[in-house]
Amino acid sequence: MNFTELYDRFFNRVYNYVRYHVRLPDETDDVTGRIFEAALRGFETYDAARAPVQAWLFTIARNAVIDWARARNRRNEVSLEDAAEQAGAEPRAEEVLERKDEARLLLEAVAALDERSRDIIALKFSSGMTNRDIALLTGLGESNVGIVIYRAVKKMQADIESKRKL
């Protein structure tokens, strides 16, 4: 597999993984670009015998997201989107209408998860990795990953249902 094939095969997955964390499309593009630039730099030294390509690529992706989150915390930046969400426990009527979009509801539900659950949900539904692979990547136990996924889905389910009732 050359790098272009890797890009074509994994771009959407990596983008979705980043999108669950970053949420803003512009910044998602920025972080995704950095991930693939880093992947290109390390592609010559990647050893397929040591790890599957998706585990290698999503390790780079996780590190990029962590770096992004740290930099964001250092800047103490709050995006307008986040600010609106944090400010309003009671969402405005037009915002409720906007949130009817299913994708937006999903993103908001994922964003409402704690950091660890969000990362595992993003890995599970974006990378195509098994619970065992995710456990290896995150350092958790395999059964623990399964429980985190189940609890996160239940929490998201409750969150989305409550917003749909509005």
Partner: peptide, 25 residues
């Protein structure tokens, strides 16, 4: 809900997919 998450694909919102591909290529 898990099925919805599995179907969700936000990559259509990316503005750099093709340009990044060309640049990296």
């Amino acid at each position: 809900l898990a099925a919805e998450l599995a179907r969700a694909d936000f990559s259509g919102q990316s503005l750099i997919k093709e340009s990044l591909r060309a640049r990296l290529n």
